[in-house]
């Protein structure tokens, strides 16, 4: 006996194996991101008043990325449609777009990451704070030895709270410029990496996990794009199913971003 319904739908369930499989897998994915989102909510409502950050992320870049993924959803759909009408050439073109869009998305994302990792908050011995993007560390800079200095492009603030809500008028009004801090004045210094606070932590975790999904999806799609030809000739119907299934996964990953974007960037 051979395994049935690998390509054709099973009459009474009206679905073929792989499609059912991916739906089930997506169900578990929903629970995975559901868990992370509920973590986000709990951390946020649990945060001390005035401490949850606002406007820390670049909305323009976020919007662009959203559009990129939206577009890629369309090209994915078209690629599948192309297979349906047995037009391999079109399929190639559309999924080429999908892949390029995905790579651009990842490019922008990594730029955003880098921006956060270059952004430092320095606690000064006098209780004030220096905050801004790293311009340079003097050659002899060494926190432990207390030698040298760092230059940031940013500003000084008296209270850490002022750094929380960057959409507030005060924050908007703040003057940014070159600030030089001597190691001798530094109490502690850290960038806006995951450990900076629970917001950056959940931000990096959520978007990082999502980026991994994008990467995985892209690899799969690329595989079909590059090496799909063989199966296309022998068993186009099966190939079409694979494109549909990988498409379903891709749409899910897009959907996750549609939630991530407002939650992280806009609120």
């Amino acid at each position: 006996m051979e395994i049935p319904y690998t390509v054709q739908n099973r009459p009474d369930t009206g679905i073929y194996n792989a499609k059912l499989g991916i739906w089930l897998f997506l169900a578990s994915e929903v629970m995975l991101f559901g868990g992370l989102f509920s973590a986000y909510v709990l951390l946020r409502v649990g945060a001390a008043p005035g401490e949850w950050p606002h406007g820390w992320l670049n909305v323009t870049l976020g919007t662009i990325n959203t559009l990129l993924l939206a577009l890629s959803a369309i090209t994915t759909l078209l690629a599948w449609a192309a297979c349906k009408v047995r037009d391999f050439g079109k399929f190639r073109i559309f999924h080429a777009c999908t892949i390029l869009l995905a790579l651009t998305f990842l490019g922008i994302k990594s730029y955003e990451y880098r921006d956060k990792l270059m952004h430092y908050e320095i606690k000064l011995n006098n209780g004030k704070f220096a905050d801004g993007h790293l311009v340079e560390k003097s050659a002899d800079f060494d926190l432990a030895k207390k030698t040298g200095s760092v230059t940031l492009h940013g500003h000084f603030v008296d209270d850490e709270k002022e750094l929380a809500d960057l959409r507030s008028p005060e924050a908007q009004a703040a003057k940014h410029g070159e600030v030089v801090v001597a190691a001798t004045d530094i109490k502690s210094m850290g960038n806006y990496g995951p450990r900076h606070n629970t917001f950056t932590a959940i931000y990096f975790t959520l978007t990082g996990l999502h980026a991994l999904h994008i990467l995985g999806g892209t690899l799969v799609i690329f595989y079909f794009w590059a090496f799909g030809g063989a199966m296309w000739k022998t068993d186009p119907e099966r190939f079409t199913n694979r494109i549909e299934v990988s498409g379903l996964f891709w749409h899910f990953v897009d959907l996750v971003w549609i939630f991530l974007f407002p939650v992280l960037y806009l609120t």
Partner: peptide, 28 residues
Amino acid sequence: LLAFPPLEAAGVLQLMDNLAGTSFFLPT
């Protein structure tokens, strides 16, 4: 299928706490 993923999420978060120095489960 439905109960394990949240633990996977939790596992990732605790892994971040243990390796990346985050504070998902650590109060002030």
